[in-house]
Design a protein around this nucleic acid. Sequence first.
DNA 1: ATAATTATTGCAAATGATTTGCAGTAATAT
DNA 2: ATATTACTGCAAATCATTTGCAATAATTAT
Lengths: 152, 152
Amino acid sequence: MTKDLLQEARQRLQTRGGRMTAQRTLILSTLDNLDTHPTAEELHSSAARQDPSLHLSTVYRTLHWLEEEGLVSSRRFDENRRQDRFDPMLPSQHHHFLCSVCGSVIEFDHPQIPAIQADFERQHGTRVDSISLVFYGLCARCSQDGGSGGGT
Amino acid sequence: MTKDLLQEARQRLQTRGGRMTAQRTLILSTLDNLDTHPTAEELHSSAARQDPSLHLSTVYRTLHWLEEEGLVSSRRFDENRRQDRFDPMLPSQHHHFLCSVCGSVIEFDHPQIPAIQADFERQHGTRVDSISLVFYGLCARCSQDGGSGGGT
DNA sequence: ATAATTATTGCAAATGATTTGCAGTAATAT
DNA sequence: ATATTACTGCAAATCATTTGCAATAATTAT
């Protein structure tokens, strides 16, 4: 769904002089295919199926590089887990819903948000550069199940 | 400004059977006096001025206990720092602005937020239980300084 | 093509925040 | 006062993430 991370990344490399390695290609395409917001470890173990020699630290380094290039963003969605999750949705500002049962993520936006930001800026004389908004709750599927499936 | 954490904590103890120790008293009152959203270490070093034998792990344990009791909440405000910050503002749901220069925190709320939540719930058939909203930017003071002070 | 240059990798060890086991200390109950 | 056991300080463990370094491989110059 993402607008081809690999393409974007290649662009950045040409502009700023880096190297497109097999590892980066693999990580990028894995991230692109995954529909989730994976942790570094999830991304690694998924990509490692293609190339078992891929090292976790390479995943971290690639992810940081992508962050610098503005192609992914990292955040800790779940305050209870200490791992960061990486979000490949680059271009549009969007927000997240996190299902506290199944962990699924829904991305969303809302037209009123800029107005809230503007009100805040006006009221406090500040400049807001970025917004992080996360809803926590039960996704449609999990709230239908009545939470009865909760074993783990 | 907080509605006396110590009082609240004592209540919880009576109800659920714990012990009010000198350390807990110190930590609670320090947290109450601090106007910030301190990290465990900041809270510890502040409290340790009164009692140098106070151990950091006790601060962590007390903070976790308070979280369970619903008297503080922990979150990672700054995605770039890996330390958690602890927020003693308990009763009202509120949101945060974080100045990326001086690190100061402004708490706020906005009447439109419930409407955004409701729209989202309607649209996705979900139930939203809690919201985390953080604005990042420059506070009034720091944006006046023109960022000229930035040495470190 | 080939060799030179240097970004990137794998690995292992370091780091930093937070947690935990344990034996000693101290709050509450008897 | 004594017994009970929650809580503490300390040190060591953990977990995610980062980093130093020598080896590898992508690009550049020849």
